[in-house]
Design a protein around this nucleic acid. Structure first.
Lengths: 129, 129
DNA sequence: GCCGGCCTACGAAGCTCTTCGTTGACTCTA
DNA sequence: TAGAGTCAACGAAGAGCTTCGTAGGCCGGC
């Protein structure tokens, strides 16, 4: 029954997922408090979003307490890769390498980050996982 | 009057932009023919999209002929960078480097592509534009 | 000069996304 | 045990996206 392909989260959904990844399993109130700090958001707005996300399978809900506990269903990394794979298909001819190159050219990158990427390249080329 | 920030193209809009980037300035019919080859699409659907995209400023229209000629307003590269910058903000803490690393880890990359990226790193580190 | 075909314009319908008000239930406490 | 606070559920409204049917104008061929 579980969806094989998780649906692409919308903007508002992604904002909630980010909070859940940061906090771990949380109540609606927890999520609302964080989001409200950045931009005024109604409590019921967050609640509704989480209900929809539960239906979509983006989060799972523990209803054993009065205040339900929500948790992400997919890791941050998995979701990020999904989004990138999607964008590569839609705008980069399916090429992740083209995408990566544009990303690196587009914005400033620190020397530390460049080194990290160099290491990554070495690992990829090594053929080892 | 020209929008300073081009709006993020939707999925259907992006599909049209891709055709325009490939063909160059084209009529609705040209675009429709290409899109219709991949997935059945109504002619007026494409027309309507192009009209909306004209209003949004994503494309420009030459009405001097009976069959209007449409052309993209922003280059493919500029649009791609916009999309990536956007995604970096929404899902990668604003870090293009994190985004690039996930992109490279996520999918298979050919040795040629790895080399191209290595060259790019060299250029970036050189500090030269 | 009329007909058929191609073109744009218009508007509407169905869908999703986002937001929020209201309601009714539960719970703690004075 | 009554009142205040907290919670989930529901429904609805408004915006944007996507699709397409229909109408009206233009043009070439007969």
């Amino acid at each position: 029954m579980a969806d094989r392909n998780p649906p692409r989260p919308t903007d508002a959904e992604l904002a909630i997922l980010r909070v859940l990844w940061a906090l771990g399993a949380s109540t609606v109130r927890d999520v609302h408090d964080v989001l409200n700090r950045h931009a005024p958001t109604g409590y019921t707005t967050v609640l509704k979003l989480l209900q929809i996300m539960t239906e979509k399978g983006l989060v799972v809900r523990d209803e054993s307490q009065r205040a339900h506990i929500y948790e992400t269903r997919y890791s941050e990394q998995k979701t990020q890769r999904q989004l990138l794979s999607d964008l590569a298909d839609r705008a980069f001819d399916g090429s992740s390498a083209k995408l990566a190159m544009q990303a690196l050219s587009g914005r400033k990158t620190t020397p530390e980050e460049l080194n990290a990427i160099r290491d990554l390249l070495k690992r990829l080329e090594g053929g080892s996982k």
